[in-house]
Amino acid sequence: MNIKIYDAQDFPSYLPKLNALYDDLFSHGKGFRSKLIQKISDHLKLEKKQIHLLAQTIEFIHNASLLHDDLVDRSHLRRNKTTAWLKYTPEYAVLAGDYLLARVMVNLSRYGNLQLLQYTAEMISDLLEGEWIQDSLVKDWDVQLKQLDEVHKLKTASLFKWCMRAPFFAKEIYSDSTHDLLDQLGAILGLLFQRSDDLLDFDIRNYENKAVLGDLKSGYMNSFAVFLTHDLDAPVKTQFRDCKSIEDVQSLLGKDFVEMRLSEFDKENQRYIDLYHHFLEQLKQEVGSEYQSVVEPLSKLPEPLYWRKA
């Protein structure tokens, strides 16, 4: 099912530049999260309207966070296009993000599932908390992986958790044990997604040819940067911060060292993939025969998500 997340008719045409901004924003996204919603919702046999609502909700929240993120980071490019705050104004970028979140609240409250509404509000709260704390870590060169994971749990993982749980809320399946498991599955997917994204920044498995070292140049140590340098001497860490290219990184640390650390990083994340599959087996026992078919598509997610190939 091809879902059209954004429709100009959903937003007032009398607000200048709003629809142009949203046209730019929604036109090039991969829509991974809405596709995840669809996969799960199909197996739970949700109605088309419900699926559309959930898919639109998650994409609105995700893109609202991107609008704000780009302004906070002062990024110039998003999906190879000029960022909204730069193309329009910072004020419009903030307000456009706020408007998407308000729209989510309107749509969900009209839908009427209070549990879903409450959970979505909590998720947005976590997302904002994660953004706030992440901003406080800029130029913190000694940050540890454990601390970054706390931020990612709030930011990236909370969206994935929502993708896992929201369809079950929509189906009015409220069992705590089921949602506990879905929460953990979403958390692991979020962690793997973030860590593989952080590897892209070091041109590792960068099949999409994204710009590299963007995080480091912005003063932010991502998870792989922290893993790479956590036990190096202070002078080496200082030189690492000043690297402008992958060649600089490899010449400073040595190609073999980077390969060795990458292998250790992959081994640690493979552990999370194995844990994901274990939790999925538990979910299979939890959901009963009626919805067991939901497990099969979920089992195919973590490897391509992390290794970045099918």
């Binding site: 704390i133 406080s136 870590l137 913190d140 060169w141 000694d142 940050v143 540890q144 601390q147 931020v151």
Partner: peptide, 11 residues
């Protein structure tokens, strides 16, 4: 120290 997850907290 300006962050509850700052690396300086442990220091």
């Amino acid at each position: 120290i300006y962050s509850p997850v700052s690396s300086q907290l442990k220091k």
